[in-house]
Amino acid sequence: MRISTTYQYDSYTHAIDLANQRVTDTQQQLLTGKRINKPSDDPYGTTAVIKMQSLQAGLAQYATNLQTAKGTLGESDSALGEAGTLLNSAYTIALSGANAATDPSAMQGLVAQVTAIQSRLVQLANTQGSGGQYIFAGQKNNVVPYTAAGGVLTFNGDTNQIQVEVGPNDQLKSTTDASNEFTTAYGQLETLKNNLLSGNLTALSSVSVADMSNSAQAVQELRGDVGTRLQSVSDLTSQNGRRTDDLTTQISNLADADASVAITKYQSALTAYQAALSVANSGLHLSLMDYLKI
């Protein structure tokens, strides 16, 4: 093939340009640390990365939701725990009251204790969460849910609970329906109080002792339910964390430049560039003119 001068120069500059381009590209990967800088760099990789980033964003929200649920469940747990303790002491009071040896003045003391338990129980039933919401009110959580009047505790709340999204199509109740347990326990405490006042030992031993035992039991069971959900929250949180870490690794594998590969590519591009420059340097100096004496 006949080589024209323009072709000769063009091919040198073209080779140098290409080599320089490769050096710049590999440099870019090293500088940004990213293998995918725009969708066309790897279309399939890009869509996979977007989907994983989206999953990760969802997981981050679920983690926040789990945190919220953990707060509410924790508050419910301690409230129910205290209520259980109160009802256990009421059980002890019922036992003491049923004992014929208890003298009337001691009976008065027991009545005062039951009254205190009742008022504390109402306080617990009206526990407010960190946002001021009533955690045992169901979905009507912005008004005081339990009011005591005439020895009866009335529930004004809602039995629908707040559901927290903890995964795709996966929800968890963050609040607990304790309306039955609280109102029943309150009524039974009222009965206990009346039996103590009237000194009805038969009723105390046959009804109230069993009542208090049952109430304490019911609250304990409810607390167990809350505990189970707290355990799920903790399980889900750690699952969530592992999944997030997995996704971070996968995204990094797809989108980030492998440093050792990038450096090797950069070195080889640099060598090719130097070779192109050196060939051009020696080739450009060759001309018939140097050998002619005109």
Binding site: S54, G58, Q61, T64, V164
Partner: peptide, 25 residues
């Protein structure tokens, strides 16, 4: 690929609903 596009805005939108569901009021 910069993570500031429609896709992440959509994630943010759905996440905000999820957050609201956990604390509706």
């Amino acid at each position: 690929t910069t993570g500031a596009g429609i896709s992440s805005a959509m994630d943010g939108f759905f996440n905000s609903w999820s957050a609201l569901a956990a604390n509706p009021n």
